[in-house]
Simulated scan of single mutants.
Amino acid sequence: MPPTPVPNPKRRALGKGLESLLPSRPAPAPAVVNLAASAPANGQPLEIPVDQIDRNPFQTRTRFDEAQLNELASSIAATGVVQPIVVRTLPSGRYQLITGERRLLASRKASKTHIPAILRVVSDEQAMEMTIVENLQRADLNPMEQARAYQRLAHDFKMTQEQMATRTGKERASVANFLRLLRLPVPVQEKVEAGELSFGHARTLLALDSPEAIAAAAQKVMALSMSVRQTETYIHSLINPEVKQKKEDKKQDQADPNVREAQQNLQRTLGLKVRIEDNRGKGRVIIEYSGVEDFDAILAALG
């Protein structure tokens, strides 16, 4: 039995640039299943069986928040799907998702058998572009997913950063910053994707030259739970060690004379560099050593 067209509900626009990729038009009937043959000429959505919709192979999004997906499923169970998904027909007669994967997944969780969908006649390239642009217009993609989406637009569609910015409604500088994240070592990219490092942390780490330096700094940032501001200060000290040393020397010059004398005595006794950081009677003693022999000497001195 052919599906019955449903009224066209008020729905949010898919975003700047997405609808302009292709005009809304009815799809031709698929080769096997003739559901699309009854697609209304005015572009109203059809109710399509969810078990006839295949996942989008061009999806750049890899993570879905399970709690948010459950909330959406509860909403769909109560009120239905407000914004139709977008699909295209396949030669087999099935449908392939273009946009709306969260709505489709949530509908399945809500045990819905049908979902409102708008049919599009698109090529593989057009379907991929629509998917990527729609994803980039969302606010909940993690930074690495956004970076890879921009990369695909640049690689597969030869788009410039300016064109990507126009198509997605973003600033060109923002597009450039996300693309720069792909310079991070893969283990650091994984930390960003998992949320252990923020976009601000990642962008700051990119000031370092080598992948090894970036990876080492990222480990320290995570181990000390540094804020973005603290990370900026830390990276600046790595790039400009002489500035850090001048600050330390200035602190030493301003230190209590008794503290300076104690520090000098320890350095003479151990034959190693010693730094005492004192703050009104509280602080720490830092002894620097460069080899096993120096370390043994410290242990011997401490008894």
Rank of each mutant, 00 (worst) to 15 (best):
F157H: 11
V50G: 00
R61C: 02
P3W: 00
A173T: 14
G43C: 07
R203Q: 12
L238G: 09
P9H: 12
S225T: 12
G283W: 00
E101G: 02
I115K: 03
I48Q: 04
F58Q: 12
E288W: 03
I118H: 08
T60K: 09
R25P: 03
L136M: 14
K244A: 13
I239D: 00
L182D: 11
E47Q: 15
E190F: 03
E125K: 14
I98T: 08
L206G: 11
A106I: 10
I276S: 05
P30T: 11
D253G: 14
S20N: 10
Q252M: 06
R102P: 00
R148L: 11
R167P: 02
N56V: 02
S210L: 06
E101I: 06
K282Q: 08
V133Q: 05
R260P: 01
D278Q: 09
I235W: 00
R284A: 14
L18E: 07
V274R: 02
V228L: 01
L69T: 15
A127S: 13
V33I: 09
A27L: 04
A216D: 14
L181K: 01
R12L: 09
K112S: 00
V81K: 01
P57W: 02
P30H: 03
T231N: 07
A215E: 13
E71R: 15
A39K: 04
P143D: 08
A29L: 04
G17P: 06
Q267Y: 00
P84W: 04
A29G: 09
V121K: 03
Q83N: 14
K251Q: 13
P2S: 06
I48E: 04
A127L: 11
T160E: 11
K16F: 02
L299K: 15
F295Q: 14
G281V: 12
P84L: 07
V50M: 01
A218K: 04
E125L: 05
Q163E: 15
T131K: 05
V192N: 04
Q59A: 14
V81W: 00
T160P: 07
F64S: 10
S75M: 03
G303C: 06
N34M: 05
R11P: 02
E129W: 01
E232Y: 04
T233Q: 14
R11M: 08
L208N: 11
L205S: 06
K246L: 14
K16D: 05
A218R: 05
R63C: 01
E212I: 11
T79I: 06
H236Y: 13
L205Q: 10
E288F: 12
L224H: 10
I48C: 06
R167T: 12
G200C: 02
A117C: 04
L104M: 08
D294A: 13
L270K: 09
K112R: 13
K246M: 13
A202W: 01
N34E: 08
S38G: 09
Y289I: 14
V228G: 02
V274T: 08
D296M: 13
K16W: 07
R229Q: 06
A215K: 11
M226F: 15
D156I: 08
A67S: 12
M222F: 01
K247W: 07
A78S: 09
L238T: 11
E71M: 08
D296A: 12
V259M: 02
Q59W: 02
Y234P: 07
G303H: 09
R284F: 05
R268G: 05
Y234G: 10
L272T: 10
R268T: 15
V82W: 00
R275D: 00
E293W: 00
L21R: 04
